[in-house]
Design a protein around this nucleic acid. Structure first.
Lengths: 220, 220
DNA sequence: CGCTTTCGCTACGGCTCGTAGCGTAACTGC
DNA sequence: GCAGTTACGCTACGAGCCGTAGCGAAAGCG
């Protein structure tokens, strides 16, 4: 289920020779995540990761240009575990994905790594492309799937113009992901069911709806 | 207009002696911002900042615990320049603040610093408190002022329960700030008037409104 | 069995960190 | 004015990490 990842790290030249150890790859990525938990982003060193993974430091540098790229690959695997639960309505679909995303951001390795690599990427264009390809763009599937389902149910109108539809999907993605990240990491307050419900209410009905009369505590 | 900042850095004991140079303080913060522009977060070193500011490295360590705290103070001043334009309607108020915020995030020093210190703060609780006090909570004034104006105009209903009202303000803040940050720094696509208009439309009217019929290109 | 590539290991120069120690400068209170 | 107190500039230092080079051995391929 988490296959097809090796495409992120292809040797520069293809030829016969000793193949790269796939066990080393998984051991390194797992060691990276564990080091993130124990040390956090800044105190994480590649030498330490190599020791934890049981490989030589030089092996790390043969496969990844540096710390940022390694961490991106290590956390990207976690994001692929997100899935859209078909809960029957657009509102509960959004709530479900928000809570899943929040749970992911609650893990210490994700928490400390995500913002750090994004910060790095503001002065490192190749890294930014790697983040988009490995994490951001892959998760837009959730927005597209949720909209398609909602349209099938008749909860959302069809958007005939594909360009406009794409812009809308990007907008929704930035709003949902951005709000959850900001709530969890900047405001550092819990993303619980209560918050998810009010947030979903805002996204669906707009500001006047949420400011006037929010959904009751037991809204279906 | 940017006064009252020295309260962020108070000497541990108050007594007679040589006072701290206020010129050094401003020179250090300005040098920090310039170093962020030239080097970005990771390559910024305190030794380099000291040289740029024309002070000794030890002076820096006497005033700030480390790089993170220094950078927080340096960029916090920039955020205080944000203001809510009284444009006559809630929609244009939001659009104005979104564009101001986006312009701030477009500056290289803000761009590279903000995410980095937030990442740091996930494993450094005192730093997180400093960010909240110096940046985040200070900017909630924009949300509170905007809501008050909208309520005066009759665009938003009054919220009698103060606890609910506070939660709503927090929600709005996370949504607006989070979406703009995500669009600007993660998706790395422009936050222009077009996007601000569509985003505002979503916040005010909800998803069905923005997916159905967005505001025309010349909506007043 | 040669060719190719990876692996583990060691070692290295270079850089940054954060602190200590010193003499000097600036300001306060007696 | 003079002693006390604090900040300042400067130098120096051990420690740690970076990223690379060089080596011999291992693991596949034709």
């Amino acid at each position: 289920m988490v296959a097809g990842m090796q495409s992120r790290n292809t040797p520069p030249t293809r030829a016969g020779g000793r193949p790269r150890s796939a066990e080393a790859d998984t051991a390194i990525l797992e060691a990276t995540r564990q080091a993130l938990v124990d040390l956090g982003w800044t105190k994480l060193t590649l030498g330490d990761v190599a020791t934890r993974a049981g490989v030589a430091k030089t092996t790390l540098y043969r496969r990844w240009p540096g710390k940022s790229e390694l961490v991106v690959d290590a956390v990207a695997e976690l994001f692929d575990e997100l899935e859209l639960p078909d809960s029957g309505s657009l509102a509960t679909d959004i709530e479900g994905v928000v809570l899943q995303f929040a749970a992911l951001l609650g893990r210490p390795e994700t928490k400390t790594a995500l913002m750090a690599v994004v910060a790095e990427s503001t002065t490192d264009e190749p890294l930014r492309a790697r983040i988009r390809a490995s994490i951001v763009d892959r998760q837009k599937r959730l927005v597209l799937a949720g909209r398609a389902r909602a349209q099938d149910r008749g909860e959302l109108p069809l958007e005939p113009d594909p360009a406009t539809a794409a812009r809308t999907a990007d907008l929704i993605f930035d709003v949902i992901a951005g709000a959850v990240v900001h709530r969890a990491l900047v405001s550092a307050e819990p993303v619980d069911e209560e918050w998810a419900r009010r947030f979903t209410w805002l996204v669906l009905g707009g500001l006047s709806a949420v400011a006037g009369q929010g959904p009751g505590p037991g809204s279906p």
